[in-house]
Write a protein that binds this DNA or RNA. Structure first.
Lengths: 249, 249
DNA sequence: TTAATTTGTCTATTTATCTAGACAACTAGA
DNA sequence: TCTAGTTGTCTAGATAAATAGACAAATTAA
């Protein structure tokens, strides 16, 4: 007997779909790689069989399971990508080897004035000109993240134009004479995805966005980039590198 | 005009409540600290006024807003706690100063045999005895996290009994002669909270759990603790410490 | 006081979700 | 082939969510 809550604003089929998805990721059915029958699930969640069918139909649409008449419902392996975060975090390098294809597309770019938050992160004066970019990354034809980045507009006035040609942030920074940069702070939180993120990442309402708020700086400490990245939480997890403070000893 | 999706398994009032909550945390209404009127919100989301009222009622139950007849709906400040994560992560110390009260309670403890995952994390053989603890932490009378920890059962047979007296993991480890330990890996992911977590953290279905999967070890590298901690995502964010690799230079 | 604007409550109706049951279609094993 | 167990489809009815409109109650400012 599991818990489903009525009148919660989440339909029963959706609560059941969420619980089955979690159970799968916890390896509950890994012995057979099959879900129990619809009648068994209906009994377990104390709902009608049709309600369970709605939940399974939703999981099938997501590609989490595959249903075969007369045989049963099979689990279609569903592994999260691993994204390492540390001082030397680089997007493409971090996911290398985990996907067949990996691409990024620039959705928006504009010059704006720095909000208090952006100004503080980049160590600029509030109202200073900044370049704001929105990029969506896609791995194996599935959107993975939506990133909003800010750069000093005075120092990097044509960042967007260069990015169109260079294809990676690292390469563009190199073209500005910045050979190396490091992550100096990362803040992680989780939210229900906002409408724009839902659309760009092809998620459905209620889906979770894992947000990283990061500051990158040159080795001397001069701020280079401030970014807010929203990952589709069901497609990725973040691995934190705890580097040894004194490597040489 | 904002997006609300029908037939998605999430009721309209809940989608609207989620969007208003996000808008508040983005500072959208920070100029007046008030929500727009019910009619204005109904127009913005293209729904009936009563649907907006349901959404606001839900936010009021959560304590996010406060409604006053004839005056309007006021935003009740709602700040996330900040939990620093680094090599020297300590639960109580990390949240010190951010809350009036902070307590932890042991919900379960038992000896079990190590699963493949636990065995690998603690560098034990699968099937070896391990101590499994479930602890729930509470800050200012609101549950914050649910942590499942595993320790080597051979080395720490009476860990649970000592924890009942000592009150912190660090203190218990000290009683076993371990004066210092460091975080060697942290993996972060976000999920819809499972039913047990919903109950322990007093969340409603659809709520988000921010999960950290962590390994702590002695300075020599010997594994001490493996833990899975589920935080209420709307009450906390995680700050990653990117320590400088060579501090002395 | 008055008017305008706000939230609160009530009734009625429509639409979506969930339940209930029956039976068809398909699969695997006896 | 037969049977038991599975998913697929249909009908009907009950419950919950959303819409629509009217008016009450409280607040604010003119």
């Amino acid at each position: 007997m599991e818990f489903v809550e009525r009148r919660s604003g989440i339909s029963l089929w959706r609560q059941i779909a969420d619980q089955i998805r979690i159970a799968i990721s916890n390896g509950e059915f890994s012995d057979t790689d099959m879900l129990p029958g619809e009648l068994a699930l209906a009994k377990r969640f104390e709902v009608n069989r049709h309600t369970v069918r709605s939940a399974i139909a939703s999981l099938a649409r997501e590609g989490v399971v595959r249903v075969e008449q007369g045989r049963g419902t099979f689990i279609a392996g569903h592994q999260r990508l691993h994204y390492p975060i540390g001082r030397r975090t680089r997007f493409s390098a971090g996911l290398a080897g985990q996907t067949r294809t990996l691409s990024g597309s620039l959705k928006e770019s504009r010059m704006e004035t720095a909000s208090a938050q952006v100004a503080q992160a980049l160590a600029l004066d509030p109202g200073a000109p900044v370049v704001r970019l929105v990029r969506v990354s896609t791995a194996d034809d599935v959107p993975l993240s939506r990133a909003i980045s800010w750069f000093d507009g005075t120092r990097f006035p044509d960042f967007a134009e260069r990015l169109a040609k260079q294809r990676s942030i690292t390469a563009v920074l190199k073209s500005f004479g910045i050979d190396d940069y490091v992550r100096i702070s990362t803040r992680i939180s989780a939210h229900h995805a906002d409408p724009q993120t839902l659309e760009d990442l092809r998620l459905s309402p209620g889906a979770i966005a894992l947000r990283t708020e990061a500051i990158n700086a040159e080795v001397g400490g001069r701020r280079v980039e401030y970014s807010n990245t929203y990952f589709a939480a069901d497609r990725i997890e973040l691995d934190i590198d705890h580097e040894t403070p004194s490597t040489g000893l």
